[in-house]
Nucleic acid binder design. Structure first.
Length: 278
DNA sequence: ATTAATGTTCAGAA
DNA sequence: TTTCTGAACATTAA
């Protein structure tokens, strides 16, 4: 599930361990599951990166970026079930990649753990990184968008607003869970065609994006019933207790009491309150 | 014991 | 051009 708040939490969790450390080794962990995508090959990456200092840990949309003093960088996409850890993992069987770090005499490791194995670890040269970060594939970070940015983004498509929120080219960082939560907070029906939203409703949407995402970051993300998402220290997040609609089909709306409805849009579950959201 | 569903992304087709 | 479909994979619930 890692969406913007979970990835931000990962970055904040690993930053104190990673930033300023030297990379002593980079390796794939031997496990019984199929290997995840690492590109270029582990050997090539290790040759280019070993001995360098990890100067900056940051986030672009749902990607974790480990930047080296050379300007080259690791770009990690957790996708569905990937985690960045600086502690023991949920289980040893799904550890995928290890960064061996040194800071003076101290040795520590950063891990990429991924149960389903859809996540990726890629290494980019400085120029490639710039293209990836600034290129057209990703829109502005959802937390940095003002109402005017949202107006431009939403005017450009006739798809339902819930589906549009998931389009990373329009706004980067929102995923399936937070899209439902944001629309409930904004009082907007998920089926509404994006281009048909009034200025006033777009203003409410922008505020809902800000408040839902920043609250979720404050609570260190959402750990769903499958327990997959954990922070860098393998601890649960807390925002799942604040969900108003996600995964609550048939239960009463916490605002008005009407039963929450589940529908499928673009092959993904959407949850909303038919009374609060118009 | 099958089948459907699960947070994401991307290629390829409609 | 825009939008839709299915696949990548592992695990759990029905």
């Amino acid at each position: 599930m890692p969406e913007l708040p979970e990835v931000e939490t990962m970055v904040r969790g690993i930053r104190p361990v990673v930033e300023g450390a030297s990379l002593a080794g980079f390796r794939r962990v031997r496990c019984s599951c199929r290997p995840i995508l690492v590109s270029p090959s582990v050997g090539v990456i290790a040759r280019r990166a070993a001995g360098r200092t990890l100067s900056r840990v940051w986030r672009r949309a749902k990607r974790v970026i480990l930047e080296l003093d050379s300007g080259d960088a690791f770009v990690i996409e957790p996708r569905m079930t990937g985690l960045m850890l600086v502690s023991d993992p949920p289980d040893a069987g799904h550890l995928r990649v290890e960064w061996q770090l040194t800071r003076g005499a101290e040795e520590r490791s950063l891990w990429f753990w991924d149960r389903r194995g859809l996540g990726t670890v890629r290494f980019f040269r400085r120029a490639e990184l710039q293209a990836l970060v600034e290129g057209g594939a990703l829109g502005r970070d959802a937390l940095e968008m003002d109402a005017e940015d949202w107006l431009t983004a939403l005017k450009s498509t006739h798809r339902p607003v819930k589906v549009a929120l998931l389009d990373q080219r329009l706004a980067a960082g929102i995923g399936n869970l937070y899209a439902s939560e944001i629309l409930h907070r904004a009082g907007i029906r998920p089926q509404t065609p994006a281009a048909r939203l009034s200025l006033a409703r777009i203003g409410r949407l922008q505020l809902a994006v800000q408040s839902v995402l920043s609250e979720a970051i404050r609570y260190e993300g959402s750990t769903l019933s499958d327990g997959t998402y954990r922070n860098a220290l393998n601890q649960s997040g807390g925002y799942q207790n604040a969900h108003r609609v996600y995964d609550r089909a048939g239960e009463g709306c916490l605002t008005c009491g009407a039963p929450i409805v589940r529908l499928v849009q673009a092959q993904r579950s959407t949850f909303y309150c038919p009374r609060c959201q118009r």
